Simulated scan of single mutants.
Amino acid sequence: MSLSMYQASIPVFIRALNVLTTLLQKGAQHAKEQGLPPESLLEARLAPDMFNLVEQVQRASDTSKGSAERLSGVPAPRMPDTEKTFEELSQRVAKTVDYLESLDPARFEGSETRTVLLPVGGDTRLEFQGDDYLLSFGLPNFYFHVTTAYDILRHRGVQVGKRDFLGVIGKRLAVGA
């Protein structure tokens, strides 16, 4: 059986968004334990011209929703970028996961050859075939923002590592199984 566009996108997005939720929880806990104002993490960025943590989470949400919408044809919920707390960001991620979980895999059938037009400013749009869009833009862009959110937290002293970023992996087997 071949890998479907649904399998290559939706479970991948959901898994990484769940990791992002865990990272946000660890960030909030770190701020509390260290007596730091949460804004010191939420407004942190890796470089002056990069988005801060809040914006990285918003873009990860938007990229996963937008990719799913473009491939499935099912409108994604619109979310104004008004989050200012760890709790609000976690709620946004949860709403994004709810949308992704609501999608019927059948809606993705044939999406590998569907034309995807991506606005890039003004009247300019990039044109992709569905599979190329997902593999060369959707997933890389999504992981860029999730990874940058992780990097911001780690750079600011939150105790997260590779296992936190990878989340639950594989199936655990009992010794001797």
Rank of each mutant, 00 (worst) to 15 (best):
E101S: 04
T124V: 14
G176R: 06
L139I: 08
F51V: 05
S40D: 11
E43M: 12
Y6E: 12
L24D: 05
G138K: 01
G110S: 02
V54R: 05
R154C: 09
D131W: 03
T21A: 06
Q56K: 06
V54D: 06
E112L: 01
Q129E: 10
T115A: 06
R156M: 15
R15N: 15
T21C: 00
L118V: 12
T124Y: 13
M79T: 12
S4L: 09
S102N: 03
D123C: 00
D49R: 09
S72P: 13
V57S: 09
G66Y: 04
I14D: 11
E112W: 00
S61R: 03
T124K: 14
T22S: 13
E109P: 00
V158P: 11
T148W: 04
F51R: 10
T113C: 11
S9I: 02
K26V: 10
T96W: 13
P37E: 10
F142I: 02
D98A: 10
S90W: 09
N52F: 11
K32Q: 15
E43G: 10
H155C: 13
S111F: 08
E43S: 14
E109G: 12
N52Q: 11
E87H: 12
R125W: 04
S111W: 06
D62P: 02
D81W: 10
L17K: 02
E112M: 09
Q7M: 08
M79K: 09
L42M: 04
G27W: 09
D104T: 13
F13I: 04
V175H: 08
F144L: 09
D104I: 10
D131P: 00
R15C: 14
F108Q: 07
H155V: 07
F165T: 05
S4V: 07
V54M: 07
G35W: 08
E83K: 01
G110R: 11
Y150D: 06
M79Y: 14
I10K: 01
E83F: 00
K95I: 10
A28M: 11
E83R: 01
T148R: 01
A28V: 05
Q7N: 07
M5D: 07
R172P: 05
M5I: 15
G66S: 07
A47Q: 13
G122Y: 05
E87W: 05
D151G: 04
K84P: 00
L118P: 09
R78Y: 14
Q58D: 12
P140L: 02
E87T: 14
L153T: 03
L103C: 08
E127C: 00
A16Q: 05
L36T: 02
L153F: 12
L24Q: 04
A47N: 04
G170C: 14
H30F: 15
R70D: 08
E112P: 00
R156L: 01
Q25Y: 07
D132S: 12
E33L: 14
Q159M: 13
L118Q: 02
T148I: 04
R163D: 13
R163L: 11
